[in-house]
Write a protein that binds this DNA or RNA. Structure first.
Length: 485
RNA sequence: GGCGCUAUCGUCUAACGGUUGAGGACGCGGCCCUCUCAAGGCCGAAAUACGGGUUCGAUUCCCGUUAGCGCUACCA
């Protein structure tokens, strides 16, 4: 599919504070594509806007990518032969390339002040024509340019868009796309502070870093013709382009804060598993063509293809993420769940409670099918870590009758006779007691459950009793008899 | 406003002109299982934006309309 020998792709975020879930998906698709084809996945930091620089953003980005399991082959902190991989460290390279453009007259210096530009735009807007630089500085003579430079007037470098040219390029996802050069502005390539704009830096770097496929968000589609022109100006071969559909808010606007969490770290903090988040964003805009929904990273790598990426934007649907999280969580081996539960416990209200692994493993066994998040073990199964401090009133109304206290007293009596009871022992004892009172065992089951857990749902009652142990169970039964009578 | 991209159940999506009275998943409702809650199983409601073409035949190809989104910065 490609004229390039090795697949080389890059994820090129701008460090503005955190990794956006849309960014995570872009990174993921790049990663999957590279791994699938034995290619190279590069991380490049696009920090050419000094006004938006955020401290620690790069570290944060790298840490989040690492958390998600998307290891890059070349990039900051990792190195590579075609670095540096941080654009602010490549200023000299951009300058050289801008000079090339200047020499071939495919770019020119512009000394217009921001004020003049602003006024020009206002006027154009008033006249209902699309805002475009009026090329005021294109006609400057060599002398005038030198004069201005000598006076120290700040200047930018603009690319000179050819007139009436149709620019066509191929996109793996959208096929052929074409734009008229008439619509293009003489884009600033080099800012007055000596930093390149995205357009220049991205083309220069993609070429120098031998990027074979530019896989990025759809918001770049409209500026791609400028990039194509730049490749032509430099006489470089075009990479393949693949513009990914956007991630949307529930109201179909572009995914943003305000309408929920957009930072990967938010989801991480909320207890979502990286496996679930990765699986989920992978399915937002891509599918394998089969009915498989649950994927490990390894399976995604095997099955991923750019050709099966959709064109239309996708809403970030939290319900499905929750479901996938539960799926991934419940399939985890005991040991891993144990490790995660201990970690969660350490940060919970029960951090001082002592429970050995054997006990926690029993809780995991009992709760496994009932949790979507690790914290659910603690929240939905709080009674495994402390006695109920209140009883669900609705359940009390339904399950706790006038005769219940005396029945439970008798049941407690039976339980206390048992030595190291198994689940079966509890069951037999309860059955016997139910027979004595001529009631169905359900009557006692629900009452005991309420007494020991405070709630109406959960694992089988014999499991709960067994996990809690005889002494604790009896204690709770007596407490309930007292408090609910 | 201009340019571009997009358009199948509420949501994510399948279908690459015909075996489609449009399939799956999440969510929702019902039933089964059952000591409860889950999990699981079964069933159900739910979609091709609209209008023209092309074709023996359009979800699928073309055009238009509408809608949504993106871009339109010395931001990326």
């Amino acid at each position: 599919m490609s004229k390039f020998k090795t697949i080389r792709v890059r994820f090129a975020p701008s460090p503005t504070g955190y990794l956006h879930v849309g960014g995570l998906r872009t990174a993921l698709y790049n990663f999957l594509f590279a791994r699938k084809h034995g290619g190279v996945f590069i991380l490049r930091i696009e920090d050419t806007d000094r006004t938006r620089y955020v401290n620690d953003a790069v570290d944060n980005l790298i840490e989040t990518l690492r958390w998600a399991g998307l290891d890059y082959d070349e990039g900051p902190e990792k190195g590579g032969t075609l670095g540096p991989y941080v654009q602010s460290q490549r200023l000299e390279i951009y300058k050289q390339h801008v000079d090339r453009l200047l020499n071939t007259r495919t770019a020119y210096r512009c000394f217009c002040t921001p004020d003049r530009l602003e006024m020009m735009r206002k006027e154009q807007e008033a006249r209902h024509i699309s805002p475009k630089y009026d090329r005021n500085c294109l006609s400057l003579s060599q002398q005038e340019i030198q004069e201005n430079a000598r006076k120290g007037i700040p200047c930018v470098v603009r690319m000179k868009i050819p007139d009436s040219l149709t620019i066509r390029f191929h996109d793996v996802i959208r096929d052929d796309v074409e734009f008229s050069s008439e619509m293009l502005d003489d884009q600033v390539l080099m800012k007055s502070d000596g930093y390149p704009t995205y357009h220049l830096a991205n083309v220069v770097d993609d070429h120098l870093m031998q990027i074979s496929h530019v896989i990025r968000g759809e918001e770049w589609l409209s500026s791609t013709p400028k990039h194509v022109l730049l490749y032509q100006f430099f006489g470089w071969e075009l990479p393949e382009f693949a513009h990914l559909p956007l991630l949307l808010n529930p109201d179909r606007s572009k995914l943003s804060k305000r309408q929920g969490d957009v930072a990967v770290e938010d989801y991480r903090a909320k207890g979502y598993l990286k496996e679930a988040l990765v699986n989920f964003v992978a399915m937002l805009g891509w599918n394998p063509g089969t009915e498989q929904e649950y994927f490990s990273l390894e399976e995604l790598i095997q099955q991923f293809s750019l050709e099966r990426v959709n064109k239309a934007g996708a809403i970030f649907n939290i319900e499905k993420l929750n479901w996938l999280n539960a799926e991934h969580l419940r399939r985890k081996p005991d040991e891993e769940l144990l490790r995660m539960l201990k970690e969660a416990l350490a940060q919970s209200n029960f951090k001082n409670a002592k429970h050995d692994d054997e006990y926690l493993l029993k809780v995991i066994f009992a709760m496994r099918e009932r949790v979507s998040f690790v914290n659910d073990f603690i929240e939905k199964g709080s009674y495994f870590f402390e006695p109920p401090n209140e009883y669900d009133q609705e359940v009390v109304r339904k399950r706790w009758k006038a005769e219940t206290p005396s029945q439970l007293k008798q049941l407690a009596e039976e339980f206390s006779k048992l030595t190291s009871p198994t689940k079966q022992d509890y069951e037999a004892a309860l059955q016997n007691t139910a027979d004595v009172f001529h009631v169905g065992n359900g009557t006692l089951i629900h009452a005991v459950r309420l007494a020991v857990s405070g709630v109406g749902g959960g694992p089988g009652v014999y499991d709960i009793l067994f996990i809690l142990g005889k002494d604790e169970s009896l204690k709770r039964m007596h407490t309930a008899i007292e408090r609910l009578t």
